[in-house]
Design a binder for these strands. Structure first.
Lengths: 190, 190, 190, 190
DNA sequence: GATGAATGAGTCTTCATTCAT
DNA sequence: AATGAATGAAGACTCATTCAT
């Protein structure tokens, strides 16, 4: 049960799968329609145009993912626990739905389709969490944004490594402890 | 003096500038030609087609950059010095020629245009350097590829942060010490 | 009534008319679209590409024509009657739809667009008919393929003569008896 | 000796070879230049433009061939001898220089490049020869143009048969007697 | 909800041709 | 004689989008 996808959801999934691989500009509406098995015109019954399709699909999943990470953050007390749990969640997410992970976190060009005042929720979450940890003295004073960026970099780049490792893609979950350990050392300083 | 660029070089620069921003698929030959100030057909006297233009421009600069990093690596003795110097070089490169840096290191989709047997020189360089440091005991045993990926992630993601920081782009060079410190802690372990 | 052509058929007719005159390479998709009165893009809803357009149009009509000749062949008993009737049919065809005749029989380059294993049905029909006549003793032993070629040559070249005869094109039907007489003499030998 | 071709001659030969296969519209100036081994611009030092190149190359060889056939015609007395010799000459020509033969006699579209008042010398020669034979009573009264067309058809279509016969092209010379015999029967009537 | 047909603008690419050197 | 660089026009084809049904 629950496997019944609406046409709109199918379109979203197809867009994600295709664009994870080739980016928004590399995927045509025709291609998406073909994969879904509907006519091109049908796409326009569900999304006003290509831009809105991309953005709506992105925003929906991005918000959901950011929300779940935020939830995880709230469920842990120490910064180290928060960090470890969030990174573990990212790794599990990658292993569960690699296309979506890539689409959300790696296809940078997606930003082009964002509304003017859009601010990315994920970096923001990391900033706050890190800032709070500085206040509590768990981690020493540091440039919050730079350190948040490095943490994201550790996760994203290892994902890319897993993605492109041949002959068959590697799993991220086994690397979760290594990554969170490294990130903890990044912020913990000397 | 000496700044006389050939048409071919101008085409390459235009392609880099445009594609750094929007990726290969987001830039048309017409656009490149317009920026350079020549006809579209003129591009084809210098590059067989769009794919070759992309790849030749990428490979030329990528090889040069990888070569210079390799040189830097050779000029230092301890792993910590190597790492610090290489990251500093990356930061200076970003500040000096941000478009090219982005085109080379961030626009991942470029890989699509690579010949079959292509292997990226930059990760390879990091792998070797790190592996050697493990042998000498400078850094403890670890998964070389994962740690190399995290180092690259730290550099790339902070670059992205600088790139998108408004109102005006930030410089990477002031962050060089922070980044190399973090990377050193990543690999040095507990 | 009944003359309502679908767009696809109109495209086919336009292609035939234009290519009969100038050959496949001499006619652009734009030209065909203009003649039909649709956009260039519309052609691609009906044919995958130019090659397939050419080949599908050719094959459809060629098969139909070969089929009708084959039917005529079956309806007659003696070889002389078969030959006479088939040549008469060719002449009537030319007079009825000169463009199509030229497109099918004269524009030799069409063969370039054929699938690998394609064998022309018309020469094959002539070969069989002639071979059968040799078996029954109606015509003396001879090189079937060479004689079939000469028969086709008589029809095609007189068609060309009619086509280019000025001021106004000549009719083939009045020449039918002359041509079939000549062809009969070719094969009957001394 | 004598194998030293001028650049202009090389261009002509290249054009013939390429256009015999794909027709004038199927061959680009670039292709010709590449085959000859000169730049495209060099072609324009020898021919004003593509049309003139095609026409000049065609006219030169066509006139030469028509002249040689005309010579052969003059060297024989009876119509049967003339016919036999001319057809033999065609067959030898085909075997000696198939590309040129095809370029001259089969690529019909060449006519498009002819000057306004151009009249084909080869059909004219046949017409005259045949008309003269009617006057002398060697062949019975008949439509000169139609019969000339059929004779040409016999030669051209058998050439096509040889051209396309696989695996390796057939020779025309062995068929010369068959063809001239057939042509003689065409015109000799009952 | 969905589709087939259509389109104008745009894609990459090739064309014949020119011209300074 | 020859060439490398250039170009405007045209080539085939794809794009996102619309609309009558």
């Amino acid at each position: 049960m629950g496997k019944q996808l609406t046409t709109k959801e199918k379109i979203g999934r197809a867009a994600i799968a295709l664009m994870a691989e080739r980016g928004p500009d590399g995927v045509s509406m025709r291609e998406i329609a073909t994969v879904v098995g509907v006519s091109e015109a049908a796409l326009y019954r569900h999304f006003a145009n290509k831009n809105e399709l991309i953005w709506e699909v992105f925003a929906t999943h991005y918000d959901a993912f950011a929300g779940s990470l935020s939830e995880i953050e709230r469920q842990h007390d120490s910064f180290e626990d928060k960090l470890t749990a969030m990174i573990a969640a990212c790794c599990e997410f990658f292993d569960r739905d690699c296309d979506l992970f890539v689409f959300l976190l790696i296809a940078q060009h997606i930003q082009r389709f964002a509304p003017k005042d859009y601010t990315a929720a994920l970096p923001a979450l990391l900033h706050q969490t890190l800032a709070a940890a500085i206040v509590t003295g768990e981690v020493p004073e540091c440039d919050v944004k730079v350190n948040a960026a490095m943490i994201m970099g550790c996760v994203i780049q290892t994902s890319l490594y897993c993605l492109y490792s041949k002959p068959e893609m590697k799993q991220m979950t086994p690397l979760a402890r290594d990554i969170s350990g490294a990130c903890w050392r990044i912020v913990k300083g000397v």
